[in-house]
C-alpha cells in the first residue's frame, strides 16, 4: 500500500529530507503526495507527473502509482 515519489533537479536540492516512498492510506491527490513526502510547501510553478504522464496537483493518485515533482523543463 505505497506510492513512489521522485523529485528532480533544483527541486530535489531544495528539500532537506525528501521521502521516496509513502503510505497510500488517506492519499487522494498529487498535492496530498507532496504534503506527505516533502518538507516545504509546494513551490509555485512546480510540474508533476503520475506514472510518467504530465498531470496537475489536483489529479488523483492510487496505490502503486509513481508520482514525480520537478521544476520547469529546460532541455534542448
Amino acid at each position: 500500500m505505497s506510492i513512489t515519489v521522485k523529485f528532480f533537479a533544483s527541486l530535489r536540492e531544495q528539500l532537506k529530507s525528501p521521502v521516496s516512498q509513502i503510505d497510500s492510506t488517506g492519499i487522494a491527490t498529487v498535492a496530498d503526495v507532496w504534503a506527505a513526502a516533502a518538507d516545504i510547501p509546494i513551490p509555485d510553478h512546480v510540474l508533476c507527473s503520475v506514472n510518467l504522464d504530465h498531470c496537475t496537483a489536483a489529479d488523483p493518485v492510487k496505490d502503486g502509482d509513481e508520482v514525480a515533482f520537478f521544476p520547469p523543463i529546460t532541455g534542448g
Partner: peptide, 14 residues
Amino acid sequence: LMEELKSRAPFWKK
C-alpha cells in the same frame, strides 16, 4: 519536435 521537446520532455540544465 524541437519546440515540444523543450516544453514537454523532462530534461534540466545546470
